[in-house]
């Protein structure tokens, strides 16, 4: 059983952490779009790949069919992105791919190598929330909180593109996210507060 668990842990990336020190730098140099194997099919067996998440590199070994969301949640323990619909309709799994919000349930991990992935864990710290996170807290823009990371990601992308969006633009930016508790009015209020404060930088 012990052997089993340790193998599992490896596969899940329980031990996977930012590749440290010089090794990481070497990996960084090697990891560019050009470095990816051209035209050579991989899989269906698990394949090693490196993901850049929140500024760190993680090596995982996954089958081609494994989604980015699955890797983030179940192998990197980055559980802020949630699996709610698993079909690109609810936005709870939203992460930023090179700064743009995308549904991580509809991205294969294979597809996003070399790209910059930002998850909710990459935004703010307990003592230093981002302006959007702070506004969510101040406006009570959450109830059960399950959809909250997704909304924060969508609005983070909005504010990085535009510091003073209108209410309509805020609603449009949130149109790919669902909240079953119905916290929308307070989410809009939080976003408007950020827009008015002019402190949208994350």
């Amino acid at each position: 059983m012990e052997e089993e668990i340790s193998r599992r842990n490896f596969l899940r990336g329980v031990g996977a952490s930012a590749v440290a020190g010089a090794l990481a730098k070497a990996a960084a140099a090697a990891q560019s779009v050009e470095s990816l194997d051209d035209q050579k099919p991989v899989g269906p067996e698990p394949e090693k790949l490196v993901l850049r998440v929140n500024g760190s590199k993680y090596e995982v070994e996954v089958e081609p069919r494994v989604t980015l969301l699955d890797v983030l949640r179940n192998r990197l323990q980055l559980t802020g992105a949630k699996e709610v619909c698993d079909r690109a309709t609810c936005g709870a799994c939203t992460v930023l791919l090179n700064g743009q919000p995308v549904y991580s349930c509809m991205k294969l991990a294979m597809e996003v190598q070399t790209q910059e992935i930002t998850t909710i864990e990459g935004l703010g710290t307990p003592n230093n929330l981002t302006p959007i996170q702070r506004a969510f807290v101040e406006c009570d823009a959450m109830m059960c909180g399950y959809c909250t990371p997704g909304f924060v990601m969508s609005l983070t992308a909005l504010f990085s593109a535009k510091s003073n969006p209108t209410v309509e633009e805020i609603k449009k930016a949130c149109s790919g996210n669902l909240c079953r508790c119905g916290t929308y009015p307070h989410i809009f209020k939080a976003a408007q507060r950020v827009a008015e404060s002019g402190q949208s930088t994350t």
Binding site: A81, Q133, V152
Partner: peptide, 16 residues
């Protein structure tokens, strides 16, 4: 609120 906006709240579905 603060733990929820950071995605740090652990739900049953997050337990590992």
């Amino acid at each position: 609120g603060p733990i929820k906006v950071r995605g740090a709240a652990k739900y049953a579905s997050d337990m590992q």
